[in-house]
Design a protein around this nucleic acid. Structure first.
Lengths: 158, 158
DNA sequence: GATGTTATGTTATCTCATAACAGAAGTGTT
DNA sequence: AACACTTCTGTTATGAGATAACATAACATC
C-alpha cells in the first residue's frame, strides 16, 4: 500500500454486531459437522479477521488479541491461523504476509486475490484455474492447491 | 519439501560452463539495450541462481556469495534480487520465500510455478491468465502483475 | 573537474515465524 | 471414578527473512 493513498477500501467492510455473530455461528456449525473444535483462541482470531476492513498481519492479530490490551504470544495466533486456513475459514496472502477471512463459501484449497497497491484492499474472487490445471496435468503434476495474487489498482484508486 | 523425499528434481538442472556463460551473456545484452548495468554483485547473484538446481533462499545466496567462503551482507543480495526481479531475470516464489532465475524469455510481470511438495522442484510454466485478467477487468481493477503458485507432486514424486 | 545520479558497503534493527517442552482440557475406556 | 490417549494451550527462547539509515564509491554529463 502506498503511503500517500487517501482512498478508502470499500470492497470488504469489516463485520460487526449481528452480521459478525452469524458469520461466527456459521463457522461453529461447520466445525461441528467436521468434528473440529472452534476453541477460544481460534474463535478470537477469526473474529478479529472478520472485523477488519483489510488484510491483517500476524503481529497485528497478536497485538489486538487480548480484550484489555494484553497481546497474545505468537504461537497462539499462528496456531489459530493454521487451523483457520486448514478449515478454509481464512487465507494467507503470501505477497503481503497477511491474512484475510475467507469471503467465498467452500473455495477449498484454492484462492485468488486482487490486491490494490494503493489502498491495500485485497478482494477475493472466485478462481477459475481450469487453464492452469490443464497445463499442470499436461506436465504430469498432481496439484493439491493453487493460489493466485494479482497486483494493481482497484476501481477507487485508479 | 518433505524431509523423506529421495527423488531428484530433474526439471531444472543448474547451468554450468558454456551454457551458464551464454545465459549471463544474454542478460548482459538485455541490460545494454535497456540502459541498465549488470554490476558485479548483480551478476554474481544471477550466476548463483542459474547454477542452482532448485529455488534458493536469500540467506543461501548470502552464504554462497563470496568466492572464498565469505558471506555477503544481506542488503547486497536483497538489492541484487530486487534488480533481477525488476528486469525479469529472476522471480520470487512467495510461498517458499525463495528465488529462481527466469526460465522463460520475456514473461514480464507475470509468473506461474508448479511447486513439488515432495522434492522442492519449482517448475516455471507459461502463464495464461486471460480468465483471471477478465475477472479483474470486470471488477474495474487495473492489473500490473500476476503470480500463481500451484502446489502438488511432480511426475517423479507421485 | 564539478555536479547529479546510481550503486555499493556497513551497522544495526525490525518483522515474521517456529522449536521445544510442560501442562490443561477433552474423549473414550474399563 | 481412574486410566490412558489425544488434542489443544501456555510459555520461553530462538531462528529465519528483510529493511532502515547513512556513509562512500563509481559512473555519467555538462
Amino acid at each position: 500500500m502506498s503511503a500517500d493513498c487517501h482512498h478508502e477500501d470499500g470492497s470488504h467492510p469489516g463485520l460487526a454486531g449481528e452480521t459478525l455473530r452469524r458469520a461466527i455461528g456459521l463457522a461453529e456449525t461447520r466445525c461441528m459437522t467436521s468434528q473440529e473444535r472452534l476453541t477460544a483462541p481460534r474463535r478470537r482470531v477469526l473474529e478479529l479477521l472478520l472485523e477488519s476492513d483489510a488484510p491483517m498481519k500476524a503481529y497485528d492479530l497478536i497485538a489486538a488479541f487480548g480484550q484489555s490490551g494484553e497481546p497474545a504470544k505468537p504461537p497462539t495466533v499462528y496456531r489459530a491461523l493454521e487451523f483457520l486456513e486448514r478449515l478454509g475459514f481464512a487465507h494467507r496472502i503470501e505477497s503481503l504476509n497477511a491474512y484475510v477471512p475467507c469471503r467465498l463459501d467452500g473455495a477449498g484449497h484454492k484462492a485468488a486475490f486482487l490486491i490494490c497497491e494503493c489502498c491495500g484492499a485485497a478482494e477475493e474472487f472466485e478462481p477459475d484455474f481450469s487453464t492452469q490445471l490443464a497445463a499442470a496435468a499436461a506436465r504430469g503434476y498432481a496439484v493439491s492447491g493453487v493460489t493466485l495474487e494479482a497486483r494493481g489498482l482497484c476501481p477507487a484508486c485508479r
